[in-house]
Design a protein around this nucleic acid. Structure first.
Lengths: 201, 201, 201, 201
DNA sequence: AATGAATGAGCCTTCATTCAT
DNA sequence: AATGAATGAAGGCTCATTCAT
């Protein structure tokens, strides 16, 4: 009675599954989860409505895979930056680079971030994925910064907090453009705060 | 052609309209906008489906009023704190108080905040309301702090940034509870950052 | 258990009932029966929604009275013309006058005629009223024309047919304006046909 | 955003679309447009509610196709009669045949005619279709009768008027049955009038 | 008699999911 | 594996009618 969900091995099938995920990614970005229907996803992916349910049990499952894709896209560039790190670096320059990176990552993925994050509230599974993402990032970065002696105390708390700040700023920067804010000054304030956090002096 | 929407004067009606808004507030909090239907709202408010449309043109209009209610709830306690302010105060104590206040406000309204904020992405009207809220808060507070000589430079940027930080932290504090984070330490870091921001010399 | 429907004696009430009928008349004319709701009728009549059901058992009953009003408006001017008739008259002139009269009557009441006649199909009561109207007109006019020796054979058939023709033409004349039709010529054809019908020798 | 409406190529689908149109045709005939709901149409057509919206954008679009079907049914037999015409024929016989034909056409389609025509008043699109129908018939027939030298002057006006008369009579004949009317006599009067119209002598 | 707020059944339409092919 | 037609439950909204005042 339980329907078989393909776990595609063949290339053609993998490709098809990926196209569905990508289509979901795009459409959820553009219109949000609830304003996207499966027919649209199928169409954008260039497949039939029916086959979507060959690869996913339901709409929600597409969302889960879209979320995973998003996680991957966001995590990678940031982790890369730290992977190459094996000794303390000039702080201001490094933090600046990170700020720019986060802004860029946000520029590309902010829409889907919003769309997904908004589901966090009603959907425990999505919520869990977000928490796992943050955990992974925080722990990895904290670990690296501790190892290279940049941070000694409260590494995890600091990293987590710094990430929050950056995320928050990037969002602000991309979206909300309040007229009365000088975003160049704001960026400096953000950078300074992060530096102050890291700089254990 | 244009249906008349009651603009209730009588107490009984005002009460009924408020009950609908409250019901919306609760249900949107619990299940989100898209997972709440008008019948549920009516039922929770103790009225018939039909009369909902006597007070609101459509479901979206309920959302708008719910949003306004939320804005009010969140803004007031914070502004109150600043209204009583007419001279510089002991910084750490004051910031601490604010942090606690924001956490409290969040505790009560975080769910609806999420539910509403999630619509920001697809709904320009809601988005606008959020921006207006932030504008109002930022400008008022920046103004006060400038007047009592707490801030001299970049007042708006600083206030805005501080609000972002606090908001972000409060959310974290209420919701995400990562095991490896010592939230007491984190709170100190946040407070310190805000103080550093304000402390201009 | 049976609700009391006012049969208003007092002037104020009669007036109110008439205002409802008139409002129905206008609104049915403008938008048809199904696109008019009782709230609109009440509003136009300057009364409350509730009281409408003090004077009428239901929406349909308003329609019935509107129909009666229409019947009256249409019948009277035509019957008047014949009432004054006590001897054969110059045929062409008389028929011409009638044609103009029917056109005028149509101009004023065509919209409601359409609105009402359209219900004929699904509503036996309305249908009956229309038949009664035609009966009355046909019989009265046939009677008069027989009495003054204008018609001798098939009086009822002829009158009925003439009425059909005129009605049909008036409708055409008011509404359908096909470009390729010379309505002046058409009017002449109609007049001629009616005259031929009447002219028994 | 724009939903895809099937434009069915496959036989099975064409059949299904036609069944929906037929169901609409019947139900609109029986109960009128406003007293028919989409669920009834679906049921009568033997399909699900949902699929109706696979073939039609909305209820109104069903009406439009029903109207087109009606137009076709009514136009064809009449035009056929004239298509075979290439020389003047014995007038009385021919007109008699037409009268019978129009009565027959009316017998079968009068109900839907009423249902559709009633919408003319509030619906410009339907109104337009009726006008186009009359135009087409009038012009074609006038053209033929002119070509075979039956009519020389005012052909269009005469044809149009004759059609009005016949239509009006057929309706009367099928529906209204006033007791005091001798329909056999009436039919003769109608035939005579049409002949008189045509007979340019 | 009168008001107008309130009721709730019913309607059109959408869409996640299934099914015949 | 794949298609896309088909299903039917559910949702937003309207409106004739009733009810509390």
């Amino acid at each position: 009675m339980s329907k078989t969900i393909r776990n595609p091995k063949q290339e053609r099938s993998i490709d098809k599954k990926n196209r569905i995920i990508t289509a979901g990614y795009e459409l959820f970005s553009e219109n949000g989860y609830y304003n996207t229907n499966t027919a649209q996803i199928a169409k954008r992916a260039g497949v039939s409505t029916g086959i979507v349910y060959g690869y996913f049990r339901n709409k929600k499952d597409i969302l889960l895979d879209v979320t995973a894709l998003y996680m991957d896209k966001v995590t990678k560039p940031i982790l890369n930056l730290f992977d190459d790190l094996d000794a303390p670096v000039e702080t201001r320059g490094f933090v600046s680079k990170i700020v720019d990176l986060v802004i860029d990552a946000h520029k590309e993925n902010a829409a889907i971030h919003e769309a997904l994050h908004s589901l966090t509230h009603t959907d425990p599974e999505i919520s869990r994925q977000f928490i796992i993402l943050e955990d992974e990032l925080t722990l990895k970065i904290a670990d690296i910064l501790t190892r290279i002696n940049v941070l000694k105390k409260d590494a995890k708390e600091k990293v987590h907090f710094a990430m929050d700040i950056l995320q928050s700023f990037a969002h602000e920067y991309i979206y909300d453009h309040h007229e009365y804010i000088d975003y160049f000054r704001l960026k400096t304030l953000v950078t300074d705060s992060v530096i102050a956090l890291i700089d254990e002096k």
